[in-house]
Design a protein around this nucleic acid. Structure first.
Lengths: 336, 336
DNA sequence: CTCTACCATGTAAACGATTACATCGGCAGA
DNA sequence: TCTGCCGATGTAATCGTTTACATGGTAGAG
């Protein structure tokens, strides 16, 4: 057999027209039981699987969505990707992955490729595009959902973790433990949510009447977290709120290397609650993002919209994170 | 505008036939400069992007490949996914991700979906399918490359890390450090490479004339690694070779909880060299898989084969891993 | 017995590109 | 001037489905 069986082969073998085959297979219109059986048998014999590309051309929908992610290697993103893929699958959608890579240009190129592939919708996760090329996002001719990121004043559906509030919870936790001098490991401005989380830390500190947090900039990864930590130690902080778990893990490592005990001397809080956060030494106190819910929300609203729903897409929907207390935080020295 | 611009719109606007538009855009056939310009201008004005689904139907290739992974959340897989996506992109291919999930049934379903989508080829990485449903793999009507896994006696292209040799290197390393009683944290038989790595450990131990390694079974994840460790400690091992880094991290955690010092009392070696392995406490000695090379090999051979190459696909190609020594291994107590 | 309705099925026109083949004007060589 | 060729472009078939519309047969109503 040179190619795969087509609907025509099935029609020929079962002695009916292609229209009937199509109808039987889709079940859209009842057929005479006998016909039905003949068609089904022929399809089985020929191992016929309809070509979704032909179907896509006719129906003008591919039942595929694109997922644009900055770095699939980052545990938070891969967990989100799993959620998105899984929910998409539930709804009969496939997922094509576009991994951002380093630069925004590449992300744009990926976007064009997705559109050429005629994906029905796109989920974009905390991309660089939202800052540099917001106008490009608005021009996308298919529904888009942004996760953990916003582009102001567009009608684009958005779901995000309450970063600011999450960071505030983390910081409040430290303050409640008696910490007075708080440090923050930030991420570059092109990282999603970077400024919101920083704000949250500041909110808490100010709310408690403490002096402003010491901020050191990381890169959103482990290495950056480690190297940012030195400055915080020097500044004499006893509590560190990291931009994310990776940064926090870097901090743990740096502190250990410097002989600073966690949590006895310094407490550390992360953000995300990636799988490995429970297994660091000590286990990481962190703010858990509702990753599965983010993914589900994104996909289901995309699907709704594809189904013709035309909700006004008002303000960004914000999902509450949850503080997960583990071993990396404890009472400040000399606290009550 | 209700829909997107089609080639016909461009043809109309530039006053030529669709054939000419197609030719100009693909550059396959030279056109008169003036025509060329008109077409290009029209395409730009209409923001025309050719539909790759129509093209796929005609050309009978989608320029898309499928990637089947067991769990995108596992760092090794996500690193591999990044490599695959990136190399595929280099060659003009898109990637649709099929995340296995728990059971093999789901993986089969995913496979069918990929085929319906008419992917040109499929990369399968250490799937459950190879054991249960090898016959299904052989029946796939597009080229397939298996990564880190084999199905015997099929003509399926295969590239794999030299698991057995890698595990042997890890174990030899411990033996060289004076360890005499070696433990191994294994993975269930349905995990790829599980038995080969176990064999490698045995090879080394036997080669050194030591008694057989103590084997405890994990689940390939952190939790399993942690719970398997107890039995190894009880058995009095001083060196542990884990199935992978996740298991090793679990072991580190369990040892720490038991007050066993690493590497002073017990040494631990992992496998994979995931990003975080360098950041554990102590940093993990591990066997680095050539992840990028695996991905590149897989994609490029797939592309070759799609291009008509018809290499005999003899034996599985095996890539050598590399021992990366960090802080989690050290001399055995009482060793010279 | 005729008419209407309806049910099961067939016919053929899309969907949006690519490409084999036909056409046509112009130019070089005889 | 005629022939032949070549380069640029147009015509139309094709890829594999879905689906609007047409058709033909059968049963129930009158």
């Amino acid at each position: 057999m040179s190619g795969r069986a087509t609907i025509e082969d099935v029609a020929a073998r079962s002695g009916v027209s292609t229209a009937t085959v199509s109808r039987v297979l889709s079940g859209s219109v009842p057929a005479r039981p006998e016909t039905r059986d003949r068609v089904l048998a022929a399809a089985r014999d020929l191992d016929y699987h309809p070509s979704s590309v032909a179907r896509a051309l006719k129906r003008r929908e591919t039942r595929t969505m694109g997922l644009v992610v900055t770095d699939i290697t980052n545990p938070f993103y891969s967990q989100l990707a799993r959620a998105v893929e899984s929910v998409a699958h539930e709804h009969g959608y496939g997922m094509v992955l576009a991994n951002g890579g380093d630069d925004a240009a590449r992300e744009l190129e990926h976007l064009d490729l997705l559109l050429e592939r005629r994906v029905d919708g796109i989920v974009i996760v905390s991309s660089r595009l939202t800052r540099r090329d917001a106008h490009r996002l608005r021009a996308i001719p298919v529904p888009v959902v942004l996760v953990n990121d916003t582009v102001t004043g567009s009608g684009i559906l958005t779901v995000t973790t309450a970063h600011r509030h999450g960071a505030r919870m983390a910081t409040d936790h430290l303050i409640l433990l008696g910490h007075r001098r708080i440090g923050h490991i930030g991420a570059p401005a092109d990282q999603a949510a970077s400024s919101q989380r920083r704000q949250g830390v500041r909110d808490a500190v100010r709310g408690a009447g403490l002096e402003d947090p010491v901020v050191a900039l990381g890169d959103g990864g482990v290495a950056g977290g480690a190297s940012a930590t030195g400055a915080l130690i020097d500044a004499g902080v006893t509590g560190i709120v990291a931009y994310n778990d990776l940064s926090a893990i870097g901090a743990l490592r740096a502190l250990h290397r410097e002989g600073v005990r966690v949590p006895d001397d310094v407490s550390v809080v992360g953000f995300d609650d990636i799988d490995l956060a429970a297994w660091t030494d000590p286990p990481l106190t962190t703010v858990r993002q509702p990753t599965d819910d983010l993914g589900r929300w994104a996909v289901e609203h995309l699907v709704d919209r594809l189904g013709g729903a035309t909700d006004p897409a008002g303000r960004p929907v914000s999902l509450e994170p949850r503080l997960v207390v583990r071993g990396s935080t404890g009472p400040a020295q000399g606290a009550v």
